Computed example of a mutant assay.
Amino acid sequence: MISAASSISSMIERPVAVSSTPTAAVKSVAGATAAGVSQVSFVDTMAQVASSAIDTLKTGEASSIAGIQGKASVQQVAEAVMAAEQTLQTAIAIRDKVVAAYQEIARMAI
């Protein structure tokens, strides 16, 4: 499970060209600069989501091992594994959407 989330995390960390573009200000539809709005890049957000997903998967694995060793209750193991499964399904869905968007862009006429 962790290898799938790690590959998504490595895909997110690669786009240097996107993260190096300057983001000075947010502009509204009229073209005015919005003051007081903090700017968060898409790459940073996705990296944070991937990191959180990896942590959830690691927690699920650790809980499973603790359950096998008799250190965790069945309920704790079930909850951690279900959370890890949901996180993995979400990561796969995001990956599928990214691949579909890339394929759509690749099909566009120049």
Rank of each mutant, 00 (worst) to 15 (best):
M1W: 12
I2F: 04
I2L: 13
A4R: 01
A5D: 03
A5P: 02
A5E: 04
S7K: 14
I8D: 00
S9P: 08
M11V: 03
M11R: 08
I12A: 10
V16E: 11
A17M: 14
A17W: 04
A17E: 09
A17G: 13
S19Y: 08
S20K: 15
S20V: 12
S20Q: 11
S20N: 13
S20P: 04
T21Y: 10
P22W: 05
T23K: 14
A24K: 11
K27F: 12
S28L: 09
S28C: 14
V29M: 11
V29A: 13
A30W: 09
T33Q: 09
T33N: 12
G36F: 03
G36E: 02
Q39F: 00
Q39H: 14
V40H: 09
F42D: 04
F42L: 11
D44F: 04
T45D: 03
T45V: 10
M46S: 13
A47Y: 05
A47G: 08
A47R: 15
A50K: 10
A50F: 05
A53M: 07
A53H: 06
I54P: 01
I54H: 06
D55P: 02
L57R: 11
L57M: 07
K58I: 00
E61V: 10
E61Y: 12
A62M: 12
S64W: 14
I65L: 13
A66I: 01
A66D: 02
G67L: 11
G67K: 14
I68E: 13
I68M: 12
I68D: 12
I68A: 15
Q69C: 11
Q69I: 10
Q69G: 13
Q69W: 01
G70F: 00
A72R: 04
A72I: 03
V74S: 15
Q75F: 13
Q76W: 04
V77R: 15
A78M: 13
E79A: 05
E79S: 07
E79H: 11
A80K: 00
A84F: 03
A84K: 05
T87A: 10
T87N: 01
L88V: 00
L88E: 01
Q89W: 03
T90S: 07
T90K: 11
A91N: 01
I92H: 00
A93H: 02
I94L: 01
D96C: 01
K97S: 09
V98P: 00
V99T: 06
V99P: 00
A100T: 02
Y102N: 10
Y102L: 09
Y102R: 15
Q103P: 01
E104A: 15
E104L: 14
A106Y: 05
A106I: 07
R107E: 06
R107T: 12
